[in-house]
C-alpha cells in the first residue's frame, strides 16, 4: 500500500516536474513570473486529449506543445508589444484560456480517455509480459522528464539560451550585445509554455481523463517544487539547479503522499502548496529582518 502510494507520488512528481522545469526557464532564467501556467497546463491536456481521442496519440504530444507555444506567444506579445505588466499578461491569458479550453472540448468540461490509445497505453503494450510492465506509467514519465531536461540544458547553453538567461539578469546587457530582449522574452515564454502544455498533456493521458480544473493551482505547486529544489541546490551549475527542480517536484509529491497517509484530506493540497511557497519566498526576507527584530527587543528591554 505504502509502496503503491510512493509510486503514484513519484509518477505525479515526474509529470509535474515538466511544469517545474518550465517555471525554471521562465521564473528563474527569464525572471518572468508566468501566471498563465494553470490555463496553459489545462490547454495542453485538452489539446492532447482531443488529438488522442481522434486517434493520434503520438501527434497529441506535438499538438499540445504547439498549443503551449501559441499561449506563451500571446503572453509575450502582451508584455513586449502592448506594454502590459508581466503578471497581468499571464493572468489575462489564464482567464481567457478557460473559455478556449471548454470550447476545444466542444462545450464539455470533461473528456474521458478510458478507451483511448495514449502514449501510456502504447508503452504499456510495449512492456507487456516483461518485469517492468507494472511500471509503465513511471517509466514513460521518467523518459519524458529526461528528454525535457536534456533538451532544456542543451538549449540554455546555446547562444540563444545565454541571451535568454541574460534577459533575466540584465536586459541592458542583452541590448548592448545587439539582441532584442523582446525577442528573447518571446522565445523563452514560448519554450516554457510548450513544456507546461506537455506536462498537462501527459498528466491527462496518464489519468485517462481531462477536466477543466486539471491545471488549477498548478503554478503554485510548480513554484513550491521549484523553491524546494532551490533550497536543495542553492549553489552549483545549471545542471545541478535543473536537477534540483526535478527533485523538488518529486519531494513535494512524496511529502503530499505522506500527508495523505496521515489522513490529510485531499482538498488540502492547494493550501499546503500555498504555505510552502509563501514560506520559501518569505524566509529569506525574514532572515534579514531577524537581527533587527532582536536588536529592537533588546533595545526596548533596556529602556524599560
Amino acid at each position: 500500500m505504502l509502496l503503491n502510494l510512493m509510486q503514484t507520488a513519484l509518477e505525479l512528481g515526474l509529470l509535474c516536474a515538466l511544469t517545474t522545469l518550465a517555471l525554471f526557464l521562465s521564473y528563474k532564467m527569464l525572471n518572468v513570473c508566468d501566471l498563465s501556467t494553470d490555463g496553459c497546463f489545462t490547454l495542453g491536456a485538452v489539446v492532447g486529449a482531443v488529438v488522442a481521442i481522434a486517434g493520434h496519440p503520438g501527434l497529441s504530444l506535438l499538438a499540445a506543445m504547439a498549443a503551449g507555444v501559441c499561449s506563451g506567444f500571446v503572453v509575450a506579445l502582451l508584455q513586449t508589444r502592448c506594454g502590459l505588466n508581466s503578471l497581468l499578461a499571464g493572468i489575462i491569458v489564464n482567464t481567457g484560456l478557460y473559455s478556449v479550453n471548454i470550447a476545444l472540448m466542444g462545450g464539455a468540461s470533461m473528456l474521458n480517455m478510458n478507451k483511448t490509445e495514449t502514449v501510456f497505453s502504447f508503452v504499456k503494450d510495449l512492456l507487456e509480459g516483461t518485469v517492468l510492465s507494472e511500471q509503465y506509467r513511471l517509466l514513460t514519465a521518467l523518459v519524458f522528464v529526461l528528454l525535457a531536461l536534456t533538451a532544456l540544458l542543451l538549449f540554455l547553453r546555446t547562444r540563444l539560451g545565454l541571451a535568454i538567461r541574460a534577459t533575466g539578469n540584465n536586459p541592458d546587457c542583452v541590448r548592448a550585445s545587439s539582441i532584442n530582449p523582446s525577442f528573447t522574452t518571446t522565445v523563452g515564454l514560448c519554450a516554457s509554455n510548450a513544456l507546461t502544455a506537455l506536462s498537462g498533456c501527459l498528466l491527462a493521458q496518464s489519468q485517462k481523463a481531462v477536466d477543466i480544473n486539471l491545471g488549477s493551482g498548478m503554478v503554485t505547486i510548480a513554484l513550491a517544487a521549484l523553491l524546494i529544489g532551490g533550497t536543495l541546490v542553492s549553489k552549483g551549475g545549471m545542471t545541478a539547479r535543473a536537477l534540483g527542480a526535478v527533485a523538488g517536484a518529486i519531494i513535494f509529491r512524496l511529502i503530499y503522499a505522506l500527508a495523505l497517509r496521515l489522513h490529510m484530506p485531499a482538498f488540502m493540497l492547494k493550501l499546503v502548496s500555498s504555505v510552502i511557497v509563501a514560506l520559501c519566498l518569505a524566509l529569506p526576507y525574514i532572515r534579514t529582518q531577524l537581527p533587527l527584530w532582536k536588536r529592537r527587543r533588546a533595545h526596548r528591554k533596556g529602556e524599560a
Partner: peptide, 8 residues
C-alpha cells in the same frame, strides 16, 4: 554593474 550579467 550595468555592463555585465552578474548571474552568468
Amino acid at each position: 554593474m550595468l555592463g555585465t550579467c552578474p548571474g552568468m
